[in-house]
């Protein structure tokens, strides 16, 4: 039977005692590597370098001092030589979001509904539907760029040219209204997978009984979709549209791979503008200033999103 002094633990290890006395230390310790990395790579550069850079004329030559120029970089975009590009870029970015997100949404919803049906080898089809999302944006963009050339191999160009007359010199990617759509095709192909997966999970979570009751009540497929599927997915749709809006706005890869921002600056969305300014023209100060203004616009969106995401937890 139990001995009386089994609870006398005079010999508790130092580690145990430290953990008991500084219980919250564990939490911080576990978090430390991540905090250091995020702080060092994301927050420190973002706050200090990002802000300071935008007030400097910055070149990469370490022997040169990078003189402070005050608000000059901002002035360049708002009132100076960059103003036209700045305004045009904002317009195109908004247009891009307005076209890509609904397009994404419709394709993803259709794909989710089809793949929620009973089909032979369904897991295989479900997996293949993610091919676009698995592919690197650059590879996707490059493939579409090739397909959009006005050449014998330009399958998308040839197809579109049957219905519209796309100028043969430069094909889709180098002629002005077409290039925009050229980017959109690639973007939707590559990105709708995220929404598709989320919708698939959402559709699967709808209780089957609801559809059975609706069938018993004589509701047809359209009504079932409108009165059961859509209301059930509503919060999911809102969340996903928010995520995709934020995540599309600053992405550079696909526009860059398809059109390189062209023709001229036609598909130079804000992200592409920063990239070009910083790493092609190497005027990092101006790019940073543009980035700061972009940040100011996007931070409220991020806060809104994080709030909706975390409110279930806290």
């Amino acid at each position: 039977m139990a001995t009386i002094d089994r609870f006398d633990r005079g010999d508790r290890s130092l580690g145990d005692r430290i953990l008991d006395e500084y219980g919250s230390l564990q939490g911080i310790l576990f978090l430390l590597p991540s905090l250091l990395l995020l702080g060092f790579i994301v927050f420190y550069p973002m706050i200090f370098n990002g802000i300071l850079l935008s007030f400097r004329q910055f070149t990469l030559d370490p022997s040169l001092v990078n003189p402070w120029v005050g608000l000059e970089n901002y002035q360049y975009w708002l009132f100076g030589g960059g103003q036209a590009l700045f305004l045009f870029s904002i317009k195109m970015t908004l247009l891009y979001e307005l076209v890509v997100i609904p397009f994404d949404l419709m394709v993803a919803l259709a794909a989710a509904l089809v793949l929620n049906e009973t089909l032979p080898a369904r897991p295989l089809w479900r997996g293949l539907m993610l091919a676009g999302y698995a592919a690197p944006p650059v590879a996707a963009g490059l493939t579409f760029a090739v397909m959009e050339q006005a050449a014998s191999y330009g399958v998308v160009y040839n197809f579109l040219n049957m219905f519209f007359s796309v100028p043969a010199s430069g094909g889709i990617t180098s002629n002005s209204p077409w290039a925009f759509w050229g980017v959109v095709f690639a973007k939707v192909w590559r990105d709708f997978g995220f929404m598709y997966v989320v919708f698939l999970a959402g559709v699967q979570s709808i209780p089957k009984e609801l559809y059975e009751i609706a069938k018993v009540d004589g509701a047809g497929p359209v009504r079932r979709f409108r009165h059961i599927t859509l209301p059930h997915l509503r919060t999911i749709i809102v969340t996903v549209v928010m995520i995709r809006t934020i995540f599309t706005i600053g992405k550079v890869e696909i526009p860059w791979a398809v059109t390189q921002g062209g023709p001229v600056n036609y598909t130079t969305f804000l992200g592409v503008a920063i990239f070009k300014q910083g790493f092609l023209n190497w005027s990092l100060g101006r790019a940073a200033a543009l980035g700061m203004m972009f940040s100011l616009a996007i931070i409220p969106l991020i806060i809104l999103w994080v709030r909706t995401e975390t409110e279930d937890y806290d």
Binding site: A2, I4, D5, R6, F7, D8, R9, R12, D16, D20
Partner: peptide
């Protein structure tokens, strides 16, 4: 207390 020994602050693993 367990058997007269104060265990109030002992972690579960030491309480047998």
């Amino acid at each position: 207390t367990f058997g007269g020994h104060d265990v109030t602050d002992l972690p579960p693993k030491d309480r047998e």
